[in-house]
Computed example of a mutant assay.
Amino acid sequence: MALWTFFGLASGKATTNWPGTGEDSGQQGVLGMPRYNPAACREGCADCAAVCPTHAIEARAGGLAVDYGRCVVCQLCTEACPTDAMTPSEDWAFGVTNRQDLIWSETSVRARAAATPERKAFRRSLHIRHVDAGSCNGCESELQALNNPFYNLHRLGIFFTASPRFADLLLVTGPVTNAMREPLMTAYEAMADPRWVMAVGTCAVSGGISGGNYASGTGLEGVLPVDVYLPGCPPNPAAIMEALLMFLNRASQRVSGGRIDG
């Protein structure tokens, strides 16, 4: 018997039971999206907006406009803010089905379970085709972790496939560079109906750091219809898993109006 077999038997089961209640997501202590508290904002102050590299925070009349779909989780705003209006948090589960839910709103309403269509055909399995549309490979590194022994995505009936013809969901990373736009469209058009799209990472959601330049678009907006948005730079494996389960109606959306439950 090989040495690694003995090591495995001695180590025991490595796979987490998460997202089971009370189980380990593997992301404890990991910084997530900065938390915005407008009540702590000092009138006329725009220090956080001045340092934001993607214009996720903009100073406007009456306060700040905060768009988590543009946030790259750099934490510069939390360092620049003199009043703790922007503070660090562990809010990483930011998957939404409506782009508007990533924009902070004073009058947030609880998110829309009713707005998410039933997908009974995928209760048991889901096949994903991933397309890198100009990513820096940060998101790809997190996607690879989904198949490691700890997360073991297959246990949830979710699989990656090499062919778009066998895929139910097109998972896109990167800001959609000019060179990758045609291959992306080719992959989407090769998918059979019904077909869905998930934007993973801030680049795919809004363009990120490099979006909107001479060689790159601003994510999937105006390119493909998006069913799930998951910002982050990059989003961690647990965030990706939760967004996929949310797509399958096996988990609830936790973000509404730019705010996460709890």
Rank of each mutant, 00 (worst) to 15 (best):
G8N: 12
K13S: 15
T16C: 05
T16Y: 02
T21S: 11
G22Y: 10
G22A: 11
G22L: 09
E23F: 14
Q27V: 14
Q27R: 13
Q28M: 13
M33P: 00
M33S: 00
R35D: 00
Y36L: 03
C41Q: 10
R42N: 13
R42F: 07
E43R: 13
E43Q: 14
E43W: 10
G44S: 03
G44Y: 11
D47K: 15
A49C: 13
A49S: 15
A49R: 02
A50E: 13
V51H: 08
C52M: 13
P53D: 10
T54K: 09
I57V: 09
I57W: 00
R60E: 15
L64T: 00
V66A: 01
D67W: 06
Y68S: 02
G69Q: 02
Q75N: 13
L76T: 08
C77L: 13
T83L: 03
A85K: 10
A85I: 06
M86C: 06
P88E: 09
S89A: 14
D91N: 10
F94R: 03
G95A: 15
N98A: 06
Q100R: 08
D101N: 10
D101L: 02
D101E: 15
D101F: 00
L102Q: 04
W104N: 00
E106T: 04
E106A: 14
S108D: 07
S108P: 05
R112T: 08
A113I: 07
A114V: 09
P117Q: 05
P117N: 01
R119M: 07
K120L: 12
A121N: 08
A121L: 12
R123K: 11
R123Q: 15
R124A: 10
S125R: 14
L126N: 04
L126E: 03
L126Y: 05
I128C: 06
V131G: 03
D132I: 07
A133R: 00
C136Q: 05
E140A: 14
S141L: 14
L143G: 04
A145R: 12
N148C: 08
N148K: 02
F150V: 06
Y151Q: 03
Y151F: 14
N152W: 05
I158K: 06
F159A: 10
F160K: 11
A162I: 02
L170V: 11
V172I: 13
V172H: 07
G174P: 03
P175Q: 09
M180G: 04
R181M: 14
R181C: 09
E182F: 08
L184T: 11
T186C: 04
A190N: 13
D193H: 12
R195P: 08
V197E: 04
M198Q: 11
A199Q: 02
V200C: 11
V205A: 00
V205R: 00
V205G: 00
S206Q: 01
G208A: 09
I209K: 04
I209Y: 08
S210N: 12
A215F: 13
A215M: 09
G219W: 01
L220A: 11
E221L: 00
L224K: 01
P225A: 06
D227M: 00
P231S: 02
P234R: 05
P235I: 04
P237G: 07
M241L: 11
L244Q: 01
L244A: 05
L244E: 03
L245G: 06
L245Q: 09
M246S: 07
L248G: 03
L248E: 01
N249T: 12
R250Q: 15
S252H: 09
S252C: 02
Q253C: 05
R254L: 09
V255A: 04
S256N: 07
G258S: 04
I260S: 02
I260A: 07
D261L: 13
